[in-house]
Amino acid sequence: MDAVSDIVSRILDAAAEEFAGQGFAGAKVEAIAKRAGVNKAGLYYHVGNKEKLYEAVMLRLFGQVAGAVEQAAVPGLSPGEALAALAEALAGLFSRLPMLPRIMALEMASGAANMPAAAMMEFRRIFGVTRGILARGQETGLLRPAEPVFVHLTLVGGMIVYSLSEPLRQRFAQVAQAMGMRTDMPVGEMGAFLAGVLTRGLAAEPKEGGA
């Protein structure tokens, strides 16, 4: 990585942390520059103003999501395997990029008020993976018809909520333990659980006379 690329990467890393912690409205360019170890002039020169920063962060993050889920749900997997692979890829991203689920939740809560138009192409790729899994499952007779948006938001939304609930789950841990429950499972287990629930719930009814 050359010097300029390193500076841009540091700026975008710092911006992602700031946007995740403060939201778009509350984020400060000064704070981002300080996190990145650059001055404001350098930040504006390399990336741009606050809107440009947010656009670059969103394209970077959701580009990573799109790439990861496209690689995970390869052709040849059964629908259940593909949904599990999708969940595993998301869990890996959420663990490696803890700001990601928070930014996703903030965008949903704001009605995507600050979502850059360019990021919508990455969302198209991401939703396209879920749509493709369902289409292949229906074509092979393994899945019954279902709305891809419902399926996608059940899986991804559940994993986002679970990731963000960690502080609450930690506070509830002693009470949960006394009730014979656990609250410390990694997000990957939640993803696998949701993928299994969806696979069983969407399974096509056996044909009459079938084995």
Results as ranks from 00 to 15, higher is better:
1 M>F: 01
3 A>Q: 12
7 I>H: 07
8 V>E: 15
9 S>Y: 01
11 I>D: 10
11 I>L: 13
11 I>H: 08
12 L>R: 04
12 L>Q: 03
13 D>G: 04
14 A>D: 00
18 E>L: 05
21 G>S: 14
22 Q>H: 10
22 Q>C: 06
23 G>E: 07
25 A>Q: 06
30 E>P: 00
32 I>C: 09
33 A>D: 04
33 A>G: 05
34 K>A: 13
35 R>Y: 02
38 V>I: 11
44 Y>A: 02
44 Y>P: 00
46 H>K: 12
47 V>E: 04
47 V>M: 06
47 V>Q: 06
54 Y>H: 14
54 Y>A: 08
57 V>Y: 00
58 M>V: 00
58 M>Q: 02
60 R>A: 13
60 R>M: 12
64 Q>H: 11
65 V>H: 13
65 V>K: 09
67 G>P: 13
68 A>V: 07
70 E>W: 03
72 A>G: 11
72 A>F: 04
72 A>N: 08
78 S>T: 15
81 E>M: 03
84 A>D: 14
86 L>Y: 09
88 E>Y: 02
89 A>H: 06
90 L>Y: 05
90 L>E: 06
92 G>M: 03
95 S>A: 08
95 S>Y: 01
99 M>V: 04
101 P>N: 06
106 L>W: 07
107 E>H: 13
108 M>Q: 11
108 M>F: 01
108 M>T: 09
111 G>A: 09
113 A>F: 01
116 P>V: 09
117 A>E: 12
119 A>W: 06
122 E>M: 10
122 E>W: 01
125 R>Q: 14
128 G>E: 14
128 G>D: 15
132 G>V: 07
133 I>F: 05
134 L>M: 12
138 Q>A: 08
139 E>M: 11
139 E>G: 06
147 E>F: 01
148 P>W: 11
151 V>I: 11
153 L>Y: 07
153 L>M: 14
154 T>F: 12
158 G>Q: 08
159 M>F: 10
160 I>G: 07
164 L>N: 05
168 L>T: 03
168 L>I: 09
169 R>Q: 12
170 Q>T: 01
172 F>K: 08
175 V>A: 15
176 A>L: 04
182 R>I: 03
183 T>I: 04
184 D>Q: 12
184 D>E: 14
186 P>M: 10
188 G>Q: 13
189 E>T: 08
190 M>P: 00
191 G>H: 05
192 A>Q: 14
195 A>Y: 05
195 A>H: 07
197 V>Y: 07
197 V>G: 02
199 T>A: 04
200 R>N: 03
200 R>V: 00
203 A>R: 15
203 A>C: 04
204 A>S: 10
204 A>L: 05
206 P>H: 10
207 K>P: 00
210 G>D: 15
